[in-house]
């Protein structure tokens, strides 16, 4: 493998990271919104949210990417491959993130909320001041776990033509007729990326996991 090929793979890793981060940045707050709709038992919307989560959770990321990319022109929106990829990643991870958030919300002690209400806090204030500061700590390990899974699912975006690590490796292999070396380098890159997240998860579990659970 040449140095140029190696650079291509590194660039691919950059794309993998960038698209994944975009998905995470959008998906984490959207997930929280979905969880709140279900937790707060908002009429009608909670049913829509439940169907959304169930549907997205059982849809492969590859299929979702293809659906968004190829079907969007037929409803009049022509989005490019990058937007399609980010949208697919966001939809996917938001459904999983909402389950993590919801788990934290469901196990949140009700007496604290009652106390906040008895002090005259409005629901939005109680959420911002009482619930959220504890919630994100208990949700963090689960969220980081979902981030790891998203990175591992990210090769799916290659089907809409984005050259991320795996796709870059395929291309290099196709030109050199030696597919294994680029795949092995790609493996090392993924291990580095995922291992970084696993470390982050261990740290967040140690720092917040228990504190969140006992809060």
């Amino acid at each position: 493998m040449t140095a140029a090929a190696f650079m291509t793979l590194l660039q691919g890793a950059g794309v993998t990271l960038a698209v994944s981060f975009a998905g995470i940045l959008l998906g984490v707050p959207i997930g929280l919104g979905i969880a709140l709709v279900r937790w707060g038992e908002v009429p009608v919307l909670r049913r829509v949210a439940a169907v959304y989560v169930s549907l997205i959770r059982s849809t492969p990321l590859v299929t979702l990417c293809l659906l968004i990319f190829f079907a969007s022109p037929s409803i009049g929106i022509d989005i490019g491959p990058v937007s399609a990829a980010v949208l697919a990643m966001t939809l996917n991870t938001s459904a999983f993130n909402s389950e993590v958030w919801r788990g934290g919300l469901v196990s949140f002690p009700k007496d604290q909320l009652e106390a906040a209400r008895s002090f005259g806090m409005r629901p939005s204030g109680a959420f911002r001041r009482i619930v959220f500061p504890q919630l994100w700590r208990s949700a963090l390990p689960g969220l980081v776990n979902e981030m790891t899974l998203l990175i591992k699912g990210s090769p799916a975006i290659a089907v809409v033509g984005i050259v991320e690590v795996t796709r870059a490796a395929v291309r290099i292999g196709a030109t050199t007729y030696e597919p294994l070396p680029p795949f092995l380098v790609a493996t090392v890159l993924y291990i580095a990326l995922v291992f970084g997240f696993v470390c982050l998860q261990r740290v967040s579990e140690r720092t917040y996991g228990r504190a969140g659970a006992s809060a």
Partner: peptide, 21 residues
Amino acid sequence: DLFRCVPFLLLAYLVYFGLPS
């Protein structure tokens, strides 16, 4: 640990191209 770090598609490629070798 190795398999938990590798994306499934990459593993599928490794098997697909690697087994013949």
